[in-house]
Design a protein around this nucleic acid. Structure first.
Length: 564
RNA sequence: GGCUCCAUGGUCAAGCGGUUAAGACAUCGCCCUUUCACGGCGGUAACACGGGUUCAAAUCCCGUUGGAGUCACCA
């Protein structure tokens, strides 16, 4: 250990230093190695994790990579756990952990162990899963590193650091705390003791063993072989409050929790050298890493793609999708199609198979960042929703409405049979082919609103008649006069044809097409008048079916109202 | 700026040295049709650029350009 370039180079002084800094730490790394043994899992099973900081804000990108982690763990009987990276007090938001667990639950992604579990099931043997509750573990390892001369206290203030950074910037050299700029590297034991006695605050830094010319070649399970420079920075291991930085906590935790694969956002790729050095210096085996391409968003301002951002893209928050009532299953299908390029094909080939049976693979993950495409999402929603039964749809809508539109929920669900009828009609159940009108809950209720709040003159804009008032009234009066609720679809439509003939509209489309100038219009115009009167819309599903779902009374009311 | 990753239609993407360069979404047209939707058929639309290597390059190499990420006592 003579290449460590320490001013304190006899092991006795190092031991003294370690005891000075961490007098209360008694456990050694060996203790924890024994306490958290390797997991006994089926071969090829992977241990993955989701490790958010407790800001409580989750966006699509989080779900995207969590889904990858979850699939990888669960496809072969592995473990997927939740660890909370709460080392930064400033980020902490009350209730965030619950939010995270709930959101994940909403999207049907369950953790096997981790934060939020009480341990009664014996599934938290690798805990605690909150990093703030693990400081004694980190301290044990840091103390060990100090004993080995691989870490040291640094008393530099933030101002001093900032100053050298600016100087380095001006000199156009690499910024950071390394080599000759790592001034606290060479402090003697006495100097350190003096500083501590005088109450100076300090952090613990890594004594980096990397060389400026060094290169590491690392195999990323998504990106393939990546060449990166060795880390040479004496990065902070423990902040002045004794809490570890992300990098250090990551190395300790993923090792002790026996994580085998880390799937994380591509923004972490650049810090792999740090993690590489940390794992090696600690004597840990590295898990395999997969850095996902970041989910991008089209930026109106710049006209280009960019990473999803929490601050700028609230509409990509998972809450947004929950509020509008996007079905979690559809979201999952969409994310899966982005995640694995062959998923879409597989899903189409085996529409009845549980999507969890899909052979998910990191090698099929995209290299470049995908742009979030709402059109595609909507298309998937339409397809997936059209495959549900009316009862499944009913439950889904009810659950959503109860939570997000409690005021209208009562009205919508007052008559269960009516609602089921509407759903059958709009989903095309019983028809040769299903309709695909539904995208998300809020949109569904907009679509079917005329069954309910028509009279209340809702926000819904009504389509206007394309014929003069007189004609409209005459047609509607005739419609009412001849209407008989017992008519079947074709009898009903024949009456519409009769009305057409009576008022100079063509009842025969062919005849109309041949000589359009001979008529005022055709049956479809008659149907349109009736349709607008009843629904307020020029476009709806089959009118006869609508009338029979809403009932004669409501229909008659609508017509009369239109005649007024 | 340094380092790193990425580059096929508007979007997501197949492609692994020889293809008429798939497919999906979007878009447009036609058909079906009382409107809408569904469905069917068809169209527009791509290998960023420049050099190599090779009989042959979207595919391999180098450069350029472009995009993205990252350079904290944040994760």
């Amino acid at each position: 250990m003579d290449n460590i370039n320490s001013s304190i180079n006899n092991s006795e002084d190092l031991k003294k230093l370690a005891d000075l800094l961490f007098p209360d730490v008694v456990n050694t790394p060996d203790f924890y190695e024994e306490k958290y043994p390797y997991r006994k899992l089926p071969s090829k099973a992977e241990v993955t994790r989701m490790a958010p900081s407790p800001t409580g804000f989750m966006h699509l990108g989080n779900l995207y990579s969590a889904l990858a982690d979850e699939r990888i763990a669960h496809k072969k009987g592995g473990v997927f756990y939740l660890r909370i990276e709460d080392t930064d007090e400033k980020r902490k938001v009350e209730g965030a952990v619950e939010t995270i667990i709930n959101v994940m639950k909403y999207f049907n992604i369950e953790f096997d162990e981790g934060a939020g579990f009480d341990g009664s099931a014996g599934n938290n043997v690798y805990g605690p899963y909150f990093q703030r509750q693990r400081v004694e573990i980190y301290h044990a390892y840091v103390k060990d590193l100090i004993t080995k001369g691989l870490a040291y206290p640094c008393f530099c203030t933030e101002e001093e650091l900032e100053k050298t950074r600016q100087q380095q910037d001006a000199d156009k050299i690499l910024t950071g705390y390394y080599g000759e700029y790592a001034t606290c590297r060479s402090l003697s034991f006495d100097e350190i003791q003096e500083n501590i006695k005088s109450g100076k605050e300090y952090v613990i830094r890594l004594r980096s063993q990397g060389s400026p010319d060094g290169e590491i070649i690392f195999k990323d399970s998504i990106k393939g072989e990546v060449k990166l420079p060795e880390n040479i920075h004496d990065i902070v291991l423990l902040k002045k409050d004794g809490v570890p930085t992300y990098h250090f906590a990551h190395a300790i935790d993923d090792h002790l929790m026996r994580t085998t694969m880390v799937i994380r956002g591509g923004e972490w790729l650049a810090s792999v050298p740090i993690h590489y050095e940390l794992f090696h210096i600690l004597g840990f085996k590295m898990p395999s890493y997969g850095h996902t391409a970041l989910l991008m968003k089209f930026d109106e301002e710049t006209g280009g793609k960019r990473k999803l951002s929490k601050r700028k893209d609230p509409e990509l928050s998972l809450d947004y999708y929950r509020k509008d009532g996007y079905h979690p299953y559809c979201m999952k299908v969409y994310l899966l199609t982005l995640l694995n390029s062959n998923f879409e094909e597989w899903h189409e080939k085996f529409p009845d198979k549980d999507i969890n049976e899909f052979p998910f693979s990191t090698s099929k993950m995209s290299q470049s960042g995908a742009l979030f495409d709402k059109d595609k999402l909507h298309n998937i929603c339409k397809n997936e929703l059209s495959a549900l039964s009316e009862y499944e749809m009913y439950d889904f809508l009810y659950d959503w409405a109860k939570e997000h539109e409690p005021g209208k929920c009562k009205m919508w669900f007052a008559d269960k049979e009516k609602m089921l009828g509407i759903l059958r009609l709009y989903m095309g159940i019983g028809m040769k082919r299903r309709r695909k009108d539904f995208i998300y809950a809020r949109q569904v209720f907009q679509l079917i609103s005329y069954f309910f709040d028509f009279e209340e003159d809702g926000q819904q804009e009504k389509d206007s008649f394309r014929f003069d008032n007189e004609t409209v009234k005459a047609v509607l009066n005739e419609y009412l006069a001849t209407y008989s609720h017992g008519d079947d679809n074709s009898a009903w439509f024949n009456k519409l044809k009769d009305i057409a003939d009576k008022f100079g509209f063509a009842s025969d489309m062919k005849a109309y097409k041949n000589e359009p100038e001979k008529y005022k219009g055709n049956v479809s115009d008659i149907a349109e008048i009736v349709r607008i009167a009843i629904t307020g819309r020029a476009n709806t599903p089959d009118l006869w079916a609508i009338v029979h779902v809403m009932g004669e009374e409501q229909m008659t009311g609508r017509i009369k109202e239109a005649i007024l």
